[in-house]
């Protein structure tokens, strides 16, 4: 698998944005806001960091990924499709009774999905189980996860954090998508998580704080995670919910709402313009 860097990652991420927003528009339901905030990290994972084989999605020695914030499936599906796990055209059937792309990630029906998620708070535990399995069996593959900041209100996340530190899972790296918004409003109002870095450090995780839309920072954080021994790494990425679509940015209302035809037309124009700009056309 050829690794992408720099501008190519950005172009790919913006193309994935367009595919994800289009899929949600066609489905007339889904979660665009959080999909757009974590898609840059997903793009780096699947186009640079992770050792995977789209032609052999269940390859035993592949790196694993768990989307603990499973409602951001549109972004994951878009990235998987672009990477070749299944045809990009399938994205048009997101959430359709006719297709295999369920509303939340389904490991039994979507090639490339390593864990079924959607019920918040549960994915990180499965990622811990995977990382632990690699340690038990002496395998070198790594496990990655993305959690939402709103998701951190779930107690099970902190159970998983403790367990990962207990077993010194330095083969586990979890992104926290700190977009600061959730369904009911600002995370700081719904259930404050700060000071998140201090909390995670107190849970014996190695913590890296980055701008989640800066590709060089994402790459550097992942490299730092790989070098960190004896403890798992949390990458706290500051992100913009709805990133890339002007009217969705920083709006809690776009957490779980599909754009109508007019709105999608605006989103499409904005994303296509950005892609052109990045491609230097």
């Amino acid at each position: 698998m050829e690794k992408l860097f720099g501008k190519d990652l950005a172009v790919t991420a913006y193309k994935a944005r367009l595919l994800a927003v289009e899929a949600v528009h066609r489905a007339a339901s889904g979660h665009p806001g959080g999909s757009l905030s974590c898609v840059d990290a997903l793009t780096v994972l699947y186009f640079n960091e992770m050792n995977v084989d789209p032609h052999n999605p269940n390859w035993e020695d592949r790196d694993r990924f768990v989307l603990s914030k499973g409602h951001c499936a549109p972004a994951l599906y878009a990235v998987l499709a672009m990477q070749g796990f299944f045809p990009v055209e399938d994205l048009q059937l997101l959430r359709s009774i006719k297709a295999h792309l369920s509303g939340h990630p389904d490991m039994r029906n979507v090639p490339g999905v390593d864990m079924s998620t959607g019920s918040l708070g549960q994915g990180l535990s499965a990622a811990v189980g995977m990382a632990l399995s690699a340690k038990i069996t002496g395998k070198l593959w790594r496990t990655y996860a993305i959690c939402g900041d709103g998701e951190l209100a779930e107690g099970q996340i902190w159970e998983a954090m403790m367990a990962a530190a207990k077993w010194k899972l330095d083969n586990l790296c979890a992104f926290i998508d700190v977009n600061g918004l959730q369904i009911d409003g600002a995370t700081k109002d719904v259930m404050p998580t700060e000071p998140l870095d201090k909390k995670l450090e107190a849970f014996n995780w190695h913590v890296v704080k980055i701008d989640g839309h800066d590709f060089s920072q994402i790459l550097a954080a992942l490299a730092e995670a790989r070098k960190t021994k004896g403890k798992p790494t949390a990458i706290l990425m500051a992100t913009v919910k709805g990133k890339g679509v002007s009217f969705m940015e920083n709006q809690a209302g776009w957490h779980g709402k599909a754009p109508n035809a007019d709105e999608f037309a605006i989103a499409k124009a904005e994303l296509e313009s950005k892609i052109k700009e990045l491609e230097g056309k």
Partner: peptide, 11 residues
């Protein structure tokens, strides 16, 4: 959840 991750990894 940990058990689920282990099972997904073949244990």
């Amino acid at each position: 959840g940990i058990a689920a991750g282990m099972a997904a990894s073949g244990l």
